[in-house]
Design a protein around this nucleic acid. Structure first.
Lengths: 173, 173
DNA sequence: AGCGGATTGAGAACCGGTCTCGAAACCGAT
DNA sequence: ATCGGTTTCGAGACCGGTTCTCAATCCGCT
């Protein structure tokens, strides 16, 4: 048994964003795709954020850092990150997409408040099992899945109010 | 004990579409909304189809019947049917929405083949339980939910081929 | 530094979907 | 049946997110 206080690696903690950036660099190299300044900057913004960012949010964040990337580049890069498995794309029915860092295969799902727009996440291991079962049963090879629960949260007074109204009157008021 | 061959109702079978149309008529009356020719025609198209129709599909189906309704009317009517709970809206990541008849509260979920576009449905009772649990735990009042599994089906040779390729090479080929 | 090929960016194009507002349809009451 | 007030309808303008275009630029390698 090894001494629990002994660590194998003494590398200084890089932080999640830095690790992700290393991974990105490697993935690009492997595919012989250039690691451009824009790709770095856009990935940086995404990796350092814990929120779900729209393409516009990313562009705004870049501007705030004194960086700049064309609209087309932002979209292209986000699509690339999704392809590489480093980002996940979400559609919360707002009329546009949102993106977030995807660390490994750590699947999680979303609760979306239709009142205030807050998005909270959850992970339920049984979900994975059930969906895998269903797919297997149907001869389906799963690539990805989306589980979204729309409703009203209880974070703010207005949302709690909406909850009450909804419970009383149903979908049409 | 009643004779099992005795039926309570002797009404001739109307067919699902006709029943749905009766329900629509009732819902509109109840809300004092006019039962217009266009609303009838659009609902008819949807109720008689077992597929997931886009707004464009609906317009095309109308044309084929010699009917016609403006784009705005098609969208407005589909939105109305959703509000009334007679239709369900789906987003299969195609860049537009699809609609299908919603009979009662029979929730079901979708497997979407990214190769051929086929959509198959499933219902797993445990899903309802799990999602209700999660919502309750977070103080969330559910309005609706979406469970979508994207992947490749085994219906056609090309899809099975894609399955094999995907299993071997992962998301990027 | 120089080369070949991929990326970038400004803006146009695209495309679902929504909005506008005069014309037409609906429906209950006369 | 018809009248009138109210609602819906429809053609097309409009909107906003996303993709496309293509010349200029950048990347990575020697």
């Amino acid at each position: 048994m090894s001494n629990p206080t002994t660590t194998v690696s003494m590398r200084p903690p890089l932080g999640c964003a830095a690790v992700m950036m290393q991974v990105l660099r490697g993935e690009l190299r492997e595919r012989e795709l250039p690691f451009t300044h824009q790709r770095e900057a856009i990935a940086q913004v995404l990796f350092e954020s814990t929120r779900h960012l729209s393409a516009d949010d990313v562009a705004a964040a870049l501007r705030q850092r004194g960086e700049h990337a064309g609209k087309a580049t932002v979209y292209r890069t986000l699509a690339l990150l999704v392809e590489l498995g480093l980002a996940a794309e979400h559609d919360f029915d707002e009329g546009f997409k949102r993106y977030e860092t995807q660390v490994g295969a750590a699947q999680h799902d979303h609760l979306i408040c239709t009142e205030c727009g807050r998005v909270s996440t959850f992970h339920h291991p049984e979900l994975d099992r059930i969906l895998a079962e269903v797919a297997a049963e149907k001869g389906f090879e799963t690539i990805t899945r989306q589980v979204k629960v729309f409703g009203t949260c209880s974070e703010s007074a207005t949302c709690r109010e909406a909850q009450r109204t909804y419970r009383e009157t149903g979908p049409i008021s």
